[in-house]
Design a protein around this nucleic acid. Structure first.
Lengths: 201, 201
DNA sequence: CCGAAAATCGAACACTGTACAATAAATAAT
DNA sequence: ATTATTTATTGTACAGTGTTCGATTTTCGG
Protein backbone atom coordinates (compact mmCIF):
# COMPACT_ATOMS: atom_id res chain seq x y z
CA UNK A 1 0.00 0.00 0.00
CA UNK A 2 2.40 2.64 -1.16
CA UNK A 3 1.19 6.13 -0.55
CA UNK A 4 2.62 8.59 -3.02
CA UNK A 5 1.54 11.53 -0.90
CA UNK A 6 3.49 10.31 2.11
CA UNK A 7 6.98 10.47 0.61
CA UNK A 8 8.54 12.47 -2.15
CA UNK A 9 10.95 10.81 -4.51
CA UNK A 10 14.07 11.69 -2.52
CA UNK A 11 12.39 10.80 0.72
CA UNK A 12 11.39 7.42 -0.65
CA UNK A 13 14.89 6.84 -1.97
CA UNK A 14 16.33 7.51 1.47
CA UNK A 15 13.69 5.27 3.03
CA UNK A 16 14.63 2.37 0.76
CA UNK A 17 18.33 2.94 1.35
CA UNK A 18 17.97 2.92 5.09
CA UNK A 19 15.79 -0.19 5.14
CA UNK A 20 18.13 -1.78 2.61
CA UNK A 21 21.15 -1.09 4.78
CA UNK A 22 19.31 -2.67 7.71
CA UNK A 23 18.47 -5.80 5.72
CA UNK A 24 22.04 -6.04 4.50
CA UNK A 25 23.49 -5.50 7.97
CA UNK A 26 21.22 -8.14 9.49
CA UNK A 27 21.42 -10.95 6.99
CA UNK A 28 24.50 -10.21 4.93
CA UNK A 29 24.70 -9.99 1.17
CA UNK A 30 23.69 -13.61 0.62
CA UNK A 31 20.33 -13.08 2.29
CA UNK A 32 19.71 -9.62 0.90
CA UNK A 33 16.41 -9.24 -0.91
CA UNK A 34 14.68 -6.33 -2.58
CA UNK A 35 11.37 -7.89 -1.65
CA UNK A 36 12.28 -7.84 2.02
CA UNK A 37 13.28 -4.18 1.74
CA UNK A 38 9.94 -3.37 0.11
CA UNK A 39 8.06 -5.23 2.80
CA UNK A 40 9.78 -3.28 5.56
CA UNK A 41 8.86 0.13 4.22
CA UNK A 42 5.33 -0.88 3.24
CA UNK A 43 5.77 -0.52 -0.49
CA UNK A 44 5.65 -3.16 -3.18
CA UNK A 45 8.64 -4.69 -4.95
CA UNK A 46 7.73 -2.88 -8.13
CA UNK A 47 8.26 0.48 -6.49
CA UNK A 48 11.73 -0.45 -5.28
CA UNK A 49 12.62 -1.63 -8.77
CA UNK A 50 11.17 1.53 -10.23
CA UNK A 51 13.33 3.74 -8.03
CA UNK A 52 16.63 1.88 -8.39
CA UNK A 53 16.18 0.06 -11.68
CA UNK A 54 17.63 -3.22 -10.46
CA UNK A 55 18.99 -4.86 -7.36
CA UNK A 56 22.63 -4.35 -8.28
CA UNK A 57 22.19 -0.60 -8.32
CA UNK A 58 20.38 -0.73 -5.02
CA UNK A 59 23.23 -2.65 -3.43
CA UNK A 60 25.73 -0.20 -4.92
CA UNK A 61 23.84 2.72 -3.43
CA UNK A 62 23.81 1.03 -0.05
CA UNK A 63 27.53 0.43 -0.38
CA UNK A 64 28.01 4.08 -1.26
CA UNK A 65 26.14 4.93 1.93
CA UNK A 66 28.47 2.65 3.83
CA UNK A 67 31.50 4.46 2.44
CA UNK A 68 30.00 7.81 3.42
CA UNK A 69 29.34 6.62 6.96
CA UNK A 70 32.83 5.17 7.13
CA UNK A 71 34.37 8.49 6.14
CA UNK A 72 32.51 10.41 8.84
CA UNK A 73 33.33 7.78 11.42
CA UNK A 74 37.01 7.89 10.49
CA UNK A 75 37.27 11.68 10.58
CA UNK A 76 35.78 11.65 14.04
CA UNK A 77 38.40 9.24 15.24
CA UNK A 78 41.18 11.21 13.60
CA UNK A 79 40.11 14.35 15.42
CA UNK A 80 41.56 13.03 18.66
CA UNK A 81 44.90 11.80 17.33
CA UNK A 82 48.20 13.39 16.54
CA UNK A 83 51.46 12.54 14.83
CA UNK A 84 52.16 8.92 13.98
CA UNK A 85 49.09 7.94 15.97
CA UNK A 86 47.01 9.21 13.07
CA UNK A 87 48.40 6.48 10.83
CA UNK A 88 47.57 3.85 13.41
CA UNK A 89 44.08 5.30 13.76
CA UNK A 90 43.63 4.71 10.03
CA UNK A 91 44.62 1.06 10.33
CA UNK A 92 42.49 0.55 13.41
CA UNK A 93 39.73 2.47 11.67
CA UNK A 94 39.72 -0.10 8.88
CA UNK A 95 39.66 -3.12 11.15
CA UNK A 96 37.21 -1.69 13.69
CA UNK A 97 34.71 -0.54 11.09
CA UNK A 98 34.86 -3.87 9.28
CA UNK A 99 34.35 -5.76 12.53
CA UNK A 100 31.56 -3.54 13.81
CA UNK A 101 29.72 -3.53 10.49
CA UNK A 102 30.80 -6.90 9.25
CA UNK A 103 27.97 -7.50 6.81
CA UNK A 104 27.96 -3.99 5.39
CA UNK A 105 31.72 -4.17 4.94
CA UNK A 106 31.60 -7.64 3.40
CA UNK A 107 28.88 -6.60 0.98
CA UNK A 108 31.26 -4.09 -0.61
CA UNK A 109 33.48 -6.94 -1.71
CA UNK A 110 30.97 -9.76 -2.10
CA UNK A 111 28.90 -7.76 -4.54
CA UNK A 112 30.44 -8.15 -7.95
CA UNK A 113 28.48 -6.18 -10.48
CA UNK A 114 27.77 -7.68 -13.91
CA UNK A 115 30.39 -6.99 -16.57
CA UNK A 116 28.00 -4.89 -18.63
CA UNK A 117 27.24 -2.58 -15.72
CA UNK A 118 29.45 0.15 -14.34
CA UNK A 119 29.84 1.64 -10.90
CA UNK A 120 27.16 3.97 -9.59
CA UNK A 121 28.39 7.54 -9.49
CA UNK A 122 27.63 7.93 -5.80
CA UNK A 123 29.68 4.84 -5.10
CA UNK A 124 32.62 6.28 -7.00
CA UNK A 125 32.29 9.65 -5.28
CA UNK A 126 32.00 8.37 -1.74
CA UNK A 127 34.71 5.81 -2.18
CA UNK A 128 37.08 8.45 -3.52
CA UNK A 129 36.20 10.67 -0.58
CA UNK A 130 37.19 7.97 1.88
CA UNK A 131 40.40 7.33 -0.03
CA UNK A 132 41.04 11.06 -0.01
CA UNK A 133 41.02 11.16 3.78
CA UNK A 134 43.70 8.49 3.89
CA UNK A 135 45.73 10.12 1.12
CA UNK A 136 45.73 13.36 3.12
CA UNK A 137 47.25 11.57 6.09
CA UNK A 138 49.80 9.79 3.94
CA UNK A 139 50.76 13.11 2.38
CA UNK A 140 51.26 14.55 5.83
CA UNK A 141 54.04 12.08 6.61
CA UNK A 142 55.55 12.35 3.12
CA UNK A 143 55.92 16.09 2.55
CA UNK A 144 58.31 15.74 -0.37
CA UNK A 145 56.28 13.24 -2.37
CA UNK A 146 54.50 14.04 -5.61
CA UNK A 147 50.76 13.66 -5.95
CA UNK A 148 50.98 10.51 -8.02
CA UNK A 149 53.33 8.99 -5.48
CA UNK A 150 50.83 9.78 -2.73
CA UNK A 151 47.95 8.33 -4.73
CA UNK A 152 49.85 5.17 -5.58
CA UNK A 153 51.24 4.64 -2.11
CA UNK A 154 47.87 5.32 -0.52
CA UNK A 155 46.24 2.73 -2.75
CA UNK A 156 48.96 0.24 -1.94
CA UNK A 157 48.63 0.83 1.78
CA UNK A 158 44.86 0.44 1.71
CA UNK A 159 45.22 -2.74 -0.33
CA UNK A 160 47.67 -4.08 2.23
CA UNK A 161 45.41 -3.33 5.18
CA UNK A 162 42.39 -4.62 3.29
CA UNK A 163 44.15 -7.87 2.52
CA UNK A 164 44.93 -8.45 6.17
CA UNK A 165 41.40 -7.55 7.26
CA UNK A 166 39.82 -9.72 4.60
CA UNK A 167 41.94 -12.67 5.66
CA UNK A 168 41.01 -12.07 9.29
CA UNK A 169 37.26 -11.85 8.79
CA UNK A 170 37.20 -14.43 6.02
CA UNK A 171 38.83 -17.00 8.28
CA UNK A 172 41.96 -17.44 6.19
CA UNK A 173 44.32 -16.39 8.95
CA UNK A 174 42.67 -18.71 11.43
CA UNK A 175 43.00 -21.49 8.87
CA UNK A 176 46.72 -21.08 8.37
CA UNK A 177 47.46 -20.23 11.99
CA UNK A 178 48.27 -16.53 11.82
CA UNK A 179 47.58 -14.52 14.95
CA UNK A 180 47.12 -10.81 15.66
CA UNK A 181 46.39 -9.74 12.09
CA UNK A 182 45.82 -6.11 13.00
CA UNK A 183 49.21 -5.78 14.66
CA UNK A 184 50.64 -7.41 11.56
CA UNK A 185 48.95 -4.88 9.32
CA UNK A 186 50.20 -2.01 11.45
CA UNK A 187 53.74 -3.32 11.20
CA UNK A 188 53.42 -3.64 7.42
CA UNK A 189 52.10 -0.10 7.07
CA UNK A 190 54.90 1.38 9.15
CA UNK A 191 57.48 -0.67 7.27
CA UNK A 192 56.14 0.47 3.92
CA UNK A 193 56.02 4.09 4.97
CA UNK A 194 59.53 3.90 6.37
CA UNK A 195 60.81 2.27 3.19
CA UNK A 196 59.33 5.16 1.23
CA UNK A 197 61.03 7.84 3.27
CA UNK A 198 58.17 8.76 5.56
CA UNK A 199 58.83 11.17 8.36
CA UNK A 200 57.01 9.47 11.21
CA UNK A 201 56.79 11.70 14.27
CA UNK B 1 18.19 -40.07 -16.10
CA UNK B 2 20.85 -40.92 -13.61
CA UNK B 3 22.49 -44.23 -14.26
CA UNK B 4 23.87 -45.67 -11.09
CA UNK B 5 25.73 -48.35 -12.97
CA UNK B 6 27.62 -45.78 -15.04
CA UNK B 7 29.44 -44.06 -12.20
CA UNK B 8 30.53 -45.10 -8.76
CA UNK B 9 30.23 -42.71 -5.89
CA UNK B 10 33.72 -41.25 -6.26
CA UNK B 11 33.38 -41.09 -10.00
CA UNK B 12 30.10 -39.22 -9.68
CA UNK B 13 31.62 -36.87 -7.13
CA UNK B 14 34.41 -36.04 -9.54
CA UNK B 15 31.93 -35.62 -12.36
CA UNK B 16 29.89 -33.11 -10.37
CA UNK B 17 33.00 -31.26 -9.28
CA UNK B 18 34.30 -30.91 -12.81
CA UNK B 19 30.97 -29.75 -14.19
CA UNK B 20 30.59 -27.47 -11.20
CA UNK B 21 33.96 -25.89 -11.81
CA UNK B 22 32.97 -25.32 -15.43
CA UNK B 23 29.70 -23.65 -14.46
CA UNK B 24 31.52 -21.51 -11.91
CA UNK B 25 34.26 -20.57 -14.36
CA UNK B 26 31.76 -19.63 -17.05
CA UNK B 27 29.19 -17.64 -15.15
CA UNK B 28 30.89 -16.69 -11.91
CA UNK B 29 29.62 -17.30 -8.42
CA UNK B 30 26.53 -15.12 -8.87
CA UNK B 31 25.23 -17.32 -11.66
CA UNK B 32 26.29 -20.62 -10.18
CA UNK B 33 23.50 -23.14 -9.85
CA UNK B 34 23.36 -26.71 -8.63
CA UNK B 35 20.52 -27.34 -11.05
CA UNK B 36 22.70 -26.29 -13.96
CA UNK B 37 25.45 -28.61 -12.77
CA UNK B 38 22.97 -31.48 -12.56
CA UNK B 39 21.67 -30.74 -16.02
CA UNK B 40 25.15 -30.86 -17.50
CA UNK B 41 25.99 -34.29 -16.19
CA UNK B 42 22.56 -35.72 -16.91
CA UNK B 43 21.56 -36.29 -13.31
CA UNK B 44 18.77 -34.67 -11.32
CA UNK B 45 19.20 -31.95 -8.71
CA UNK B 46 18.31 -34.38 -6.00
CA UNK B 47 21.37 -36.47 -6.73
CA UNK B 48 23.70 -33.50 -6.55
CA UNK B 49 22.18 -32.53 -3.22
CA UNK B 50 22.46 -36.08 -2.03
CA UNK B 51 26.16 -36.23 -2.80
CA UNK B 52 27.19 -32.85 -1.40
CA UNK B 53 24.40 -32.16 1.11
CA UNK B 54 23.98 -28.52 0.14
CA UNK B 55 25.23 -25.97 -2.34
CA UNK B 56 27.66 -24.33 0.07
CA UNK B 57 29.56 -27.55 0.49
CA UNK B 58 29.61 -28.05 -3.26
CA UNK B 59 31.08 -24.61 -3.78
CA UNK B 60 33.64 -25.28 -1.07
CA UNK B 61 34.70 -28.49 -2.76
CA UNK B 62 35.07 -26.69 -6.05
CA UNK B 63 37.14 -24.04 -4.31
CA UNK B 64 39.27 -26.77 -2.79
CA UNK B 65 39.81 -28.09 -6.30
CA UNK B 66 40.85 -24.62 -7.38
CA UNK B 67 43.43 -24.45 -4.61
CA UNK B 68 44.80 -27.84 -5.62
CA UNK B 69 45.10 -26.78 -9.25
CA UNK B 70 46.71 -23.53 -8.19
CA UNK B 71 49.34 -25.38 -6.18
CA UNK B 72 50.31 -27.61 -9.09
CA UNK B 73 50.38 -24.66 -11.47
CA UNK B 74 52.59 -22.69 -9.08
CA UNK B 75 55.08 -25.51 -8.51
CA UNK B 76 55.47 -25.88 -12.24
CA UNK B 77 56.31 -22.24 -12.59
CA UNK B 78 58.72 -22.38 -9.68
CA UNK B 79 60.62 -25.21 -11.30
CA UNK B 80 62.17 -22.84 -13.80
CA UNK B 81 63.17 -20.07 -11.41
CA UNK B 82 66.07 -19.47 -9.10
CA UNK B 83 67.10 -17.09 -6.35
CA UNK B 84 65.07 -13.95 -5.81
CA UNK B 85 63.19 -14.72 -9.01
CA UNK B 86 61.33 -17.40 -7.08
CA UNK B 87 59.73 -14.75 -4.89
CA UNK B 88 58.66 -12.79 -7.95
CA UNK B 89 57.26 -15.97 -9.48
CA UNK B 90 55.08 -16.31 -6.40
CA UNK B 91 53.70 -12.80 -6.79
CA UNK B 92 53.20 -13.21 -10.51
CA UNK B 93 51.72 -16.63 -9.81
CA UNK B 94 49.04 -15.01 -7.70
CA UNK B 95 48.13 -12.33 -10.20
CA UNK B 96 48.35 -14.55 -13.29
CA UNK B 97 46.24 -17.33 -11.82
CA UNK B 98 43.61 -14.88 -10.61
CA UNK B 99 43.47 -13.22 -14.02
CA UNK B 100 43.41 -16.45 -15.99
CA UNK B 101 40.78 -18.03 -13.77
CA UNK B 102 38.99 -14.91 -12.70
CA UNK B 103 35.68 -16.48 -11.76
CA UNK B 104 37.20 -19.45 -9.98
CA UNK B 105 39.48 -17.14 -8.06
CA UNK B 106 36.69 -14.71 -7.22
CA UNK B 107 34.43 -17.50 -6.02
CA UNK B 108 36.90 -18.29 -3.25
CA UNK B 109 36.28 -14.87 -1.76
CA UNK B 110 32.71 -14.21 -2.85
CA UNK B 111 31.49 -17.36 -1.22
CA UNK B 112 30.91 -16.63 2.43
CA UNK B 113 29.71 -19.71 4.19
CA UNK B 114 26.90 -19.44 6.77
CA UNK B 115 28.01 -18.82 10.35
CA UNK B 116 26.75 -22.19 11.51
CA UNK B 117 28.81 -24.05 8.92
CA UNK B 118 32.53 -24.69 8.98
CA UNK B 119 35.10 -25.14 6.26
CA UNK B 120 35.18 -28.37 4.34
CA UNK B 121 38.19 -30.47 5.27
CA UNK B 122 39.43 -30.70 1.72
CA UNK B 123 39.30 -26.92 1.46
CA UNK B 124 41.40 -26.58 4.59
CA UNK B 125 43.89 -29.18 3.41
CA UNK B 126 44.38 -27.84 -0.08
CA UNK B 127 44.54 -24.27 1.04
CA UNK B 128 47.20 -25.14 3.62
CA UNK B 129 49.12 -26.99 0.95
CA UNK B 130 49.21 -23.91 -1.26
CA UNK B 131 50.25 -21.77 1.68
CA UNK B 132 52.91 -24.33 2.47
CA UNK B 133 54.54 -23.86 -0.91
CA UNK B 134 54.83 -20.15 -0.29
CA UNK B 135 56.05 -20.62 3.26
CA UNK B 136 58.80 -22.88 1.94
CA UNK B 137 60.02 -20.14 -0.37
CA UNK B 138 59.82 -17.53 2.36
CA UNK B 139 61.81 -19.78 4.64
CA UNK B 140 64.45 -20.12 1.95
CA UNK B 141 65.21 -16.41 2.04
CA UNK B 142 64.96 -16.22 5.84
CA UNK B 143 67.23 -19.03 7.05
CA UNK B 144 67.46 -17.74 10.62
CA UNK B 145 63.75 -17.28 11.22
CA UNK B 146 61.67 -19.46 13.53
CA UNK B 147 58.74 -21.45 12.24
CA UNK B 148 56.14 -19.10 13.72
CA UNK B 149 57.89 -16.15 12.16
CA UNK B 150 57.77 -17.87 8.78
CA UNK B 151 54.11 -18.73 9.18
CA UNK B 152 53.18 -15.24 10.25
CA UNK B 153 55.25 -13.48 7.64
CA UNK B 154 53.99 -15.80 4.91
CA UNK B 155 50.41 -15.05 5.86
CA UNK B 156 51.12 -11.35 5.89
CA UNK B 157 52.79 -11.46 2.49
CA UNK B 158 49.93 -13.42 0.94
CA UNK B 159 47.45 -10.98 2.46
CA UNK B 160 49.39 -8.10 0.97
CA UNK B 161 49.49 -9.60 -2.49
CA UNK B 162 45.87 -10.67 -2.23
CA UNK B 163 44.83 -7.15 -1.28
CA UNK B 164 46.53 -5.71 -4.34
CA UNK B 165 45.08 -8.35 -6.65
CA UNK B 166 41.59 -7.97 -5.21
CA UNK B 167 41.75 -4.23 -5.73
CA UNK B 168 42.94 -4.74 -9.29
CA UNK B 169 40.29 -7.22 -10.36
CA UNK B 170 37.57 -5.61 -8.27
CA UNK B 171 38.11 -2.29 -9.99
CA UNK B 172 39.13 -0.38 -6.88
CA UNK B 173 42.53 0.59 -8.25
CA UNK B 174 41.03 1.83 -11.50
CA UNK B 175 38.54 3.82 -9.45
CA UNK B 176 41.14 5.66 -7.40
CA UNK B 177 43.66 5.97 -10.23
CA UNK B 178 46.34 3.50 -9.20
CA UNK B 179 48.36 1.95 -12.02
CA UNK B 180 50.56 -1.16 -12.30
CA UNK B 181 49.21 -2.96 -9.24
CA UNK B 182 51.35 -6.03 -9.75
CA UNK B 183 54.57 -4.03 -9.80
CA UNK B 184 53.30 -2.34 -6.66
CA UNK B 185 52.70 -5.67 -4.97
CA UNK B 186 56.16 -6.87 -5.96
CA UNK B 187 57.72 -3.76 -4.46
CA UNK B 188 55.75 -4.26 -1.24
CA UNK B 189 56.81 -7.88 -0.95
CA UNK B 190 60.48 -7.08 -1.45
CA UNK B 191 60.25 -4.19 1.01
CA UNK B 192 58.63 -6.37 3.62
CA UNK B 193 61.13 -9.16 3.15
CA UNK B 194 64.01 -6.70 3.32
CA UNK B 195 62.60 -5.11 6.46
CA UNK B 196 62.50 -8.55 8.04
CA UNK B 197 66.09 -9.37 7.30
CA UNK B 198 65.63 -11.45 4.21
CA UNK B 199 68.68 -12.55 2.31
CA UNK B 200 67.61 -11.88 -1.25
CA UNK B 201 70.03 -13.33 -3.77
C1' DC C 1 16.07 -65.39 -5.05
C1' DC C 2 14.54 -62.24 -1.76
C1' DG C 3 14.84 -58.63 1.60
C1' DA C 4 17.36 -54.64 3.18
C1' DA C 5 19.94 -50.69 1.97
C1' DA C 6 21.31 -47.22 -0.87
C1' DA C 7 20.81 -44.21 -4.97
C1' DT C 8 18.08 -41.55 -7.95
C1' DC C 9 14.26 -39.09 -9.41
C1' DG C 10 10.68 -35.81 -9.72
C1' DA C 11 7.53 -33.10 -7.75
C1' DA C 12 6.48 -29.99 -4.25
C1' DC C 13 7.63 -25.45 -1.34
C1' DA C 14 9.05 -21.01 -0.43
C1' DC C 15 11.84 -18.08 -2.06
C1' DT C 16 14.40 -14.78 -5.67
C1' DG C 17 14.81 -10.67 -9.50
C1' DT C 18 12.65 -8.85 -13.33
C1' DA C 19 8.92 -7.39 -16.63
C1' DC C 20 4.75 -5.36 -17.49
C1' DA C 21 -0.19 -4.32 -17.94
C1' DA C 22 -3.63 -2.21 -15.03
C1' DT C 23 -4.76 1.21 -11.79
C1' DA C 24 -4.32 5.31 -9.03
C1' DA C 25 -2.64 9.82 -8.31
C1' DA C 26 -0.57 14.20 -9.38
C1' DT C 27 0.33 17.70 -12.73
C1' DA C 28 -0.42 20.35 -17.01
C1' DA C 29 -3.38 22.22 -20.42
C1' DT C 30 -7.35 24.01 -21.99
C1' DA D 1 -13.08 23.50 -13.53
C1' DT D 2 -12.51 19.79 -16.38
C1' DT D 3 -10.03 17.35 -19.21
C1' DA D 4 -5.56 15.23 -20.82
C1' DT D 5 -1.11 13.65 -19.76
C1' DT D 6 2.44 12.18 -17.26
C1' DT D 7 4.07 9.67 -13.35
C1' DA D 8 3.84 6.36 -9.32
C1' DT D 9 2.37 2.20 -7.57
C1' DT D 10 0.46 -2.15 -7.46
C1' DG D 11 -0.23 -6.86 -8.41
C1' DT D 12 0.57 -10.56 -11.14
C1' DA D 13 3.18 -13.47 -14.03
C1' DC D 14 7.55 -15.79 -15.35
C1' DA D 15 11.66 -18.24 -15.06
C1' DG D 16 14.74 -19.14 -12.03
C1' DT D 17 16.88 -20.67 -7.23
C1' DG D 18 18.02 -24.18 -2.92
C1' DT D 19 16.03 -27.50 -0.16
C1' DT D 20 12.96 -31.31 1.37
C1' DC D 21 10.99 -35.64 0.85
C1' DG D 22 8.14 -39.56 -0.64
C1' DA D 23 8.23 -42.83 -4.48
C1' DT D 24 10.84 -45.56 -7.41
C1' DT D 25 14.71 -47.84 -8.92
C1' DT D 26 18.98 -50.24 -8.47
C1' DT D 27 22.44 -52.65 -5.89
C1' DC D 28 24.09 -55.83 -2.71
C1' DG D 29 24.11 -59.26 1.32
C1' DG D 30 22.35 -63.41 2.99
Amino acid sequence: MGRRSDHGRDELEALILEAGAAVLAEGGYARFSAREVAKRIGYSVGTVMHVFGNVDRLVMEINARTFAAWTLWLEERLAHAQGRQRILVLVDGYFAFAREHRNLWSAIYEHRLPDAMDFAETLVTHRRKLTGVIAREVAAVLPEATETTITTLTGSLIATVHGHCAFLLGGTFALIGVEHPQALAETRVLEILAANGADLP
